[in-house]
Design a protein around this nucleic acid. Structure first.
Lengths: 271, 271
DNA sequence: CGGATTTTGTGCACGCATTCACAAGCGGCT
DNA sequence: AGCCGCTTGTGAATGCGTGCACAAAATCCG
């Protein structure tokens, strides 16, 4: 019951795992060495570390930028620097999804793009509902189909009666009591919670009731959800506080360096 | 040069470390066993893992909720469940900042609160500037001093001439060309980038020029910054794609379970 | 006062993630 | 054809983070 929420900010999270699919049928007849462009033995898909998934999404964006500029192939080194990671990590990340590179050459941009899209499940559209049409909700609703196709916003909800029926970003706002119905009917896959913290848990429960398995939570609360529901959290306050910590740490460091230097010089020591 | 950006969504990031403060003065005269409420040997402050810092911020919020409800003390077990982590982890996290608990009893809510605030550097205010007053920027500017005191928004910037001078959330919008000047003058500590991706790098450079050491980046690009600048990233598209991956994975799992079951039943096996 | 009970703080072991370093593979050049 | 240089893919090592399990401390109670 009620599983631990995965922090959208912080994922030193466990590897993505399927709960014991121990019976994987007969000894994998396709167990041959993967030839060029082999899409991983399917039993192994589960083995992609959560952290790697996050980076794959980054690579994807960088790749589409490169494609726009007419790049046909790209080396791990180029892609890595553009994505802000080291090239070994990039190659390992890519190795989780198969072997699509050519030694001595690099990767074909379009091949890599579509393979990452495939693994991330971006080949089918995931319908999104936004709950809480305040400042942030407005921003999200207008975000315009969410960057890159794939995530059409197909329902909006709020509790404010003045807002019900008003179109926002071309879509009318519904009352949150209708969440279960509408989500089920429209087959919403992802629910985005942009409500005040007090309403978040109730909203989340209704989303789950409506068959939503994935929730992106902007409200500063820890949501309790049943086992099978995936929650990611984005929390502005916490992001700021983490930055604040670094400010404080750096300040302290500067101070202690000063004192150390002062002490050293007063002792005639060489720093 | 240009150090790797720390992903706001994903932090399996390295432990917060100071670059070689090897000279830590004389052999720490206060090296005695820490009595009740001792604030860690100061040389050890650096040892707080990044992941723990993120969680400390969560504990802080949970604690303030509890304080409002009149709680005076709290056990690690209670606090842990409320924060969605296991109690051992919570205790370990707290141990990084000192020992403020009473065995057999728990923690005093207000003591713990102020100690976490101290470590996170929330005792001094960190001034924030928001760049890019679009939908998201509006939402951020109106966020109202950011949850819990500590992060006053003290400057707004945009490139759109129609917006310059217009007050948003009680603060006039300035032109992005004035970023370096104004940030330096008002001693802005944290810059929030809510611009389109194309503008983000230029904006970031100006923030750094204005003496800002911490950046919270909402634009979907990897920022290149000098060594001493701390960047955290919040990326909606990537969060959605990670969720999408889980949807896809679960779907696949269901399919493979079905096939396995079918195979098993056709073989007369017991599942 | 001593033992039972509760809860903290932490040593330890395990597992995931990152990084290094190198063999294997591919294309191009002579 | 054969060699050379480049780049991938991955085994192995290291380091970090998590969770267990227990000793140490503090309170309560008889």
């Amino acid at each position: 019951m009620a599983r631990v929420q995965r922090d959208g900010g912080d994922d030193s999270a466990p590897t993505t795992e399927l709960p014991a699919v121990r019976d994987q049928g007969p000894p994998a007849v396709n167990g041959r060495a993967n030839g060029r462009g082999a899409p991983m033995p399917a039993d192994k898909v589960r083995a992609i570390p959560e952290a790697a998934v996050a980076r794959l999404a980054v690579y994807l964006r960088v790749l589409s930028g490169m494609a726009e500029q007419g790049a046909v192939t790209v080396s791990s080194e180029e892609l890595a620097t553009a994505a802000g990671v080291n090239s070994a990590k990039l190659r390992k990340d890519l190795s989780y999804i198969g072997t699509y590179g050519t030694r001595g050459v690099g990767y074909e941009v379009d091949v890599l793009t579509s393979e990452i899209e495939r693994v991330l499940g971006l080949t089918r559209q995931q319908k999104v509902a936004v709950v809480g049409i305040g400042n942030l909700g407005h921003a999200l609703a207008n975000y315009g189909g969410f960057p890159g196709r794939g995530f059409p916003v197909e329902a909006l909800f709020d509790v404010d009666p003045d807002l019900i029926g008003i179109p926002v970003g071309g879509l009318p706002v519904n009352h949150i009591d209708d969440i279960p119905d509408i989500c089920a009917k429209r087959k919403i896959a992802i629910g985005v919670i942009a409500t005040p913290p007090t309403a978040a848990q109730a909203v989340c429960d209704r989303l789950v009731e409506g068959g939503v398995h994935c929730v992106l939570n902007f409200a500063p609360v820890v949501l309790q959800v049943p086992e099978h529901v995936e929650v990611r959290k984005v929390d502005l306050a916490i992001e700021l506080q983490i930055l604040s910590f670094h400010v404080a740490r750096n300040a302290e460091q500067r101070v202690s360096r000063r004192t150390a230097a002062a002490r050293a010089s007063s002792n005639g020591e060489v720093v």
